[in-house]
Design a protein around this nucleic acid. Structure first.
Ligand SMILES: NC(=O)c1ccc[n+]([C@@H]2O[C@H](COP(=O)([O-])OP(=O)(O)OC[C@H]3O[C@@H](n4cnc5c(N)ncnc54)[C@H](O)[C@@H]3O)[C@@H](O)[C@H]2O)c1
Ligand SMILES: NC(=O)c1ccc[n+]([C@@H]2O[C@H](COP(=O)([O-])OP(=O)(O)OC[C@H]3O[C@@H](n4cnc5c(N)ncnc54)[C@H](O)[C@@H]3O)[C@@H](O)[C@H]2O)c1
Lengths: 234, 234
DNA sequence: AAGCCTTTGTGAACGCACGCACAAAGTCGG
DNA sequence: CCGACTTTGTGCGTGCGTTCACAAAGGCTT
């Protein structure tokens, strides 16, 4: 059978690397759309997204054949297809746990709502923080976690609590039915199968930059006998 | 000569994937050290870091042979070796540009200093913000950018400015001598060769989670004829 | 209607990364 | 001093991701 069946190019099983780039393409497309651009070639879009054009085309080919040869891709249509693939045609309710420095910044950020992510619940353990209103939402006490998550139909949680509390909070949100977690605490979270965790660790990012920075400056080599000096104070 | 030469296992050219994991190992090692652990096996450390033990050993082998067969790795010694490889035996001066919601959270965070990153300069364009004291530092006007970066010997900059200003600010910090950038603005930055950019995009992280979340719920397939409905209001 | 020009979609080659599995190396008890 | 046991360091097979390069496809002009 030469004919392509129902799931032809639309093979369930989009490479993870591709999934991670789709939001970048989407952002570039939104910018183009605002500028009134109707059609875009893979070359132009790739440049806007900061990737190789072959890679872009292969990525898009995983969703289907949505381009027109000799012309390019229709911006609006592609926005819709990528959005659909990413699950952005529906709204997602998100809970933020931990409304300290970072949690507040996240709760007050407008860039999420525009992508279909609604911050539906803010939770904290500190009585001094519970009751605060942030961006139109009231901070609830962590004791209401299970109730709030169930009531709001929340499946995504953002953890902005101290590292020492992260695993415990994680366990609770998972027990309440959350299956996707964005973790800011510098710890490795353990979760059951079927639960996705993504971590954002700013300290790690800086350390990676420092590594390359050091390379540019000449590298660590040269001095070999420094350990004893560094450890032994004498 | 059987003795390992200056560059033996210490091959210049550590895989990028390894570099990204070294900070995770380092964090796990610090935790173990605090707990008084002297020696750790690859199996234990791998578990603490959430990776495969073979991967851990291969990663560490890129720095040299710092383990003892039959015993494991000495925690303190390994901390030192990884720190040195990452360039954390020296302090790094970092500038934060944009002291809005996010910039403030970053400036107030204590977790950076403990890794050798000193926030040396805070810069913003808003006169209402310039002069504020955050965590013992005064916010300077962006006009002093070049001067401050030069004076403090800053080579790493964190950008927490609006997307619309990011590229312009980026160009300025690069022109001032910064060669490593951590970017929070949702834009693709263009920089000259030799400058490293790492991006942190929380919106993208949520979108990736949404993609997998949708999969768990049954996937987008099924309904094929939705585009016209979605675009055309009628 | 035909041919030219542009751009897509993908086959194929390559390189990196992961993880298994094991020999070599070292420890520790007797 | 020796033998059993533990754990490292790595060779190797496998799979994923990237990139090149080009045939096929469609539009546009004449
Ligand atoms: N602020 C930053 O820039 C930054 C940078 C990198 C990483 N982080 C990490 O992000 C996390 C939050 O950072 P932060 O600066 O906002 O810390 P923070 O101390 O300001 O805020 C933590 C909040 O969590 C709350 N909390 C503590 N235990 C809780 C529990 N069991 N249940 C619910 N809430 C609880 C606290 O009341 C507090 O409001 C930390 O893990 C930190 O390491 C922060
Ligand atoms: N707050 C969040 O949780 C969050 C989440 C994801 C992404 N981001 C991104 O991080 C960036 C900062 O977010 P935010 O919420 O802190 O925004 P914000 O508007 O609160 O702060 C931006 C700051 O940058 C300053 N600024 C503007 N133009 C400047 C210039 N040319 N030079 C120097 N300073 C300038 C402003 O005065 C302001 O203080 C944005 O690009 C945003 O999209 C923020």
């Amino acid at each position: 059978m030469t004919r392509r069946s129902t799931l032809g190019a639309r093979n369930r099983g989009i490479p993870e690397a591709t999934v991670a780039r789709l939001p970048v393409y989407l952002r570039a497309l939104h910018t183009l759309a605002e500028r009134g651009v109707v059609t875009v070639s893979s070359e132009e879009l790739a440049a806007a997204a900061g990737v190789n054009s072959a890679k872009l085309r292969k990525d898009l080919s995983h969703l289907g054949s949505y381009g027109t040869r000799g012309v390019g891709y229709e911006v609006q249509y592609l926005v819709y297809q990528i959005s659909r693939e990413l699950g952005l045609t529906q709204d997602w309710s998100v809970a933020i746990v931990g409304l300290g420095n970072l949690g507040r910044a996240l709760a007050g950020y407008g860039g999420f709502a525009s992508r279909g992510f609604r911050m539906s619940a803010l939770l904290d353990a500190d009585p001094a923080i519970v009751g605060d209103r942030i961006n139109g939402l009231t901070v609830e006490h962590i004791d209401k976690l299970e109730q709030v998550i169930t009531d709001c139909g929340i499946s995504i949680a953002v953890l902005a609590v101290p590292a020492s509390a992260a695993q415990a909070v994680c366990d609770r949100v998972v027990a309440s039915g959350v299956t996707s977690i964005l973790n800011f605490a510098p710890v490795v979270l353990t979760v059951p199968d079927g639960v996705d965790v993504r971590k954002v660790d700013l300290s790690i990012e800086l350390q990676i930059l420092a590594f390359h920075e050091q390379r540019k400056a000449g590298g660590p080599g040269g001095v070999e006998q420094e350990y004893l000096e560094a450890v032994d104070g004498s």
